[in-house]
């Protein structure tokens, strides 16, 4: 059933590491490059997994659903790999910011198809998820030659730097704060009507958005937001589902895994958008099955209370 749920957020964008720990890794990247930073990362992740059960517990909901047959030991291994994956993605993002974009090769599949979608002139919703190094990946969609608006909220006290901040550069994206006026909905609609690109996360509720629909994901019901589908319906913009994953020590691949078209005037009710949300969730599940340690959701998606 589609419903408007009152979701007390049980996740945070804030890093678990202290500021000095971040600085330490940035220094390692500068002095020793990726290998040195990765080497320390193995130890740090090991520390968190062995001595910080609270951090291990954050991996548990996803691991339990992605690897339902795994025993305690294998769940520990999967949690380690998942956390290591996130650590690498964050280091890769910092690497791009500190040592330059040429240090990371990001291949984009289906470039022509993406250019074709933008050329339709109705705007484009780039729907991503917490997969791979999504920020660094989005930086590579500059070949689309349209402004990219990103729905993003940064919490007070968040010390994690975006890649462009390492060089003191301006954001290549135009940020829309989901906690702002009307959740940024009108700003997003305006951008789409101008033919611009709006990037949203399809796998997480943000800001004051209470519009979600429950869809089966990895064997359990999960609430996914449907506001972006409503925006696509109102503007006529196609939705490009764009995922990425790490393919090697210094490389990522961005893939256009689905193009979802939501007919105009779909109305207001969540049920209207179920087929489109389900299409995204199917794509996400397929991707997560193929790249299990590239999905970074450290909170309980399946918990109906939150």
């Amino acid at each position: 059933m589609a419903e408007q749920v009152s979701q007390p957020r049980n996740w945070s964008s804030r890093s678990i590491g202290a500021a000095w720990q971040h600085q330490f890794f940035y220094l390692l990247l500068r002095l020793g490059g990726r290998r040195a930073a990765y080497l320390f990362l193995y130890l740090v992740v090991g520390y968190y997994m062995v001595l910080r059960p609270d951090q291990r517990a954050k991996c548990a909901p996803y691991v339990r659903h992605r690897f339902p047959a795994a025993g305690a030991w294998m769940r520990f291994i999967h949690s380690y790999c998942m956390s290591l994956g996130l650590g690498r993605a964050l280091l890769d993002r910092a690497l791009v910011g500190i040592l330059g974009p040429e240090r990371l090769r990001i291949d984009v599949d289906q470039r022509e198809e993406l250019l074709g979608l933008v050329a339709e002139g109705r705007g484009l919703v780039l729907m991503t998820a917490h997969l791979g190094s999504w920020q660094a990946a989005l930086a590579r969609v500059d070949f689309l030659r349209r402004p990219v608006y990103m729905l993003m909220h940064r919490e007070a006290g968040d010390i994690d730097r975006h890649y462009y901040e390492h060089q003191g550069e301006e954001s290549p994206f135009r940020m829309i704060d989901p906690t702002g006026f009307l959740g940024g909905a009108v700003e997003m609609l305006t951008a789409l009507k101008q033919g611009d690109i709006v990037s949203v996360m399809g796998d997480r509720m943000l800001g004051a958005d209470r519009n979600s629909i429950a869809v089966e994901f990895l064997g359990g019901e999960v609430h996914f937001p449907y506001s972006a589908y409503k925006l696509a319906s109102a503007s006529g913009a196609p939705i490009a589902v764009l995922f990425n994953h790490k393919t090697g020590p210094d490389s990522y691949r961005i893939e256009l895994v689905r193009v979802i078209r939501v007919p105009r005037e779909k109305g207001r009710q969540g049920e209207e958008f179920r087929p489109y949300v389900a299409e995204f969730v199917r794509a996400l599940e397929e991707y997560v099955q193929a790249h299990p340690y590239q999905f970074f959701n450290f909170f309980d998606l399946w918990n109906k209370e939150g």
Partner: peptide
Amino acid sequence: DSLDAVELVVLIQKHFGVEIKDM
């Protein structure tokens, strides 16, 4: 709510021929 705002922007244009162009 915010989704109604999206609908509202569309409705204003549809019924009154007026476009809300920006914030």
